[in-house]
Amino acid sequence: MLLELLLLTTLGFFGSFGHCVGMCGPLTASFSLSAKSPVSSKKWHQFQFHTLLNFGRLCSYTLTGAGIGALGSVLVASGHLAGIDSDLRRWLAIITGLMLIWFGLAKVQPQLLPNLPIFHP
């Protein structure tokens, strides 16, 4: 359990680091450089601007994550209440994963795969 949490935390850190360098950093820089009034060049206004920008970003990410997590927990709970066995869910996950691999290979080398009617309606 602790190893899983450590791996998830590490994955989250590296994923968010790349996201912030690629998207949030340029957005923040463009917002801060777009100020037209000379009043915004004061340190207090810059601090206030960046604080409000990051507070809004954190709140929106938190609410989005909470909403998606709530939806996922409702779906898992409804599967348990409906009596869907875990073996069935495992096989559905395996079949779905194999179909994703199949579709990916079909995009890379379509001539190597047989033309099955179920995958080509």
Rank of each mutant, 00 (worst) to 15 (best):
G67K: 08
K42I: 00
L105M: 14
F13E: 09
H120A: 07
G25M: 13
S37Q: 01
L98H: 03
F14K: 01
I94T: 04
D85K: 09
L2M: 02
A106C: 09
G12K: 05
F119M: 14
M1V: 12
H19I: 09
G22W: 03
N115D: 15
L81V: 00
Q111F: 04
G69P: 05
P117Q: 05
M23Q: 06
T64M: 11
L58E: 13
A77C: 09
I84N: 04
V21W: 08
L112Y: 05
W91G: 01
N115Y: 02
G97C: 12
D87A: 13
F47W: 10
G69C: 13
L112D: 14
R57H: 05
P26I: 00
T51G: 12
L5V: 06
H50F: 01
S40R: 00
I84C: 08
L6G: 02
L5R: 15
Q48D: 12
K36G: 04
A77I: 01
A35W: 04
L100A: 06
G15L: 06
W91N: 14
G104C: 04
L2F: 10
C24D: 14
S41L: 09
P114E: 08
G69Q: 08
V39S: 12
G15E: 13
P121G: 15
S16I: 11
E4N: 13
A93L: 07
T96M: 06
V76G: 10
G12F: 09
P114N: 05
A93T: 07
L116R: 03
A106Y: 00
I94C: 00
L3I: 10
S32V: 04
P114Q: 06
A35T: 08
G104I: 06
L98T: 06
P26T: 00
S41D: 15
G25Y: 12
H120L: 03
S37W: 00
A35D: 01
F47K: 00
Y61I: 01
L116G: 11
H80E: 15
S41K: 13
K42Q: 12
F103I: 08
H45R: 06
V76T: 13
L98F: 02
I101N: 01
T10C: 10
L116H: 05
P117Y: 00
G104V: 03
T96Q: 04
I84H: 10
A106M: 08
T9N: 15
S37K: 06
A66I: 09
G67T: 03
G67F: 04
L92S: 09
R89N: 10
H19N: 12
M1E: 13
F31T: 00
T62H: 04
G104K: 07
F14E: 15
L7K: 15
L92P: 05
L52G: 12
I84A: 13
W102C: 00
L81S: 07
E4Y: 07
F17Q: 07
F47E: 07
H45S: 11
H45Y: 10
T51Y: 04
L6K: 12
G104P: 03
I118Y: 03
W91C: 05
A106R: 08
E4R: 08
G12R: 07
L105H: 11
Y61S: 11
L58H: 07
N115S: 11
L2I: 08
G56D: 13
T10D: 14
L88C: 14
F49T: 06
L75G: 06
N54I: 01
N115R: 14
Q48G: 03
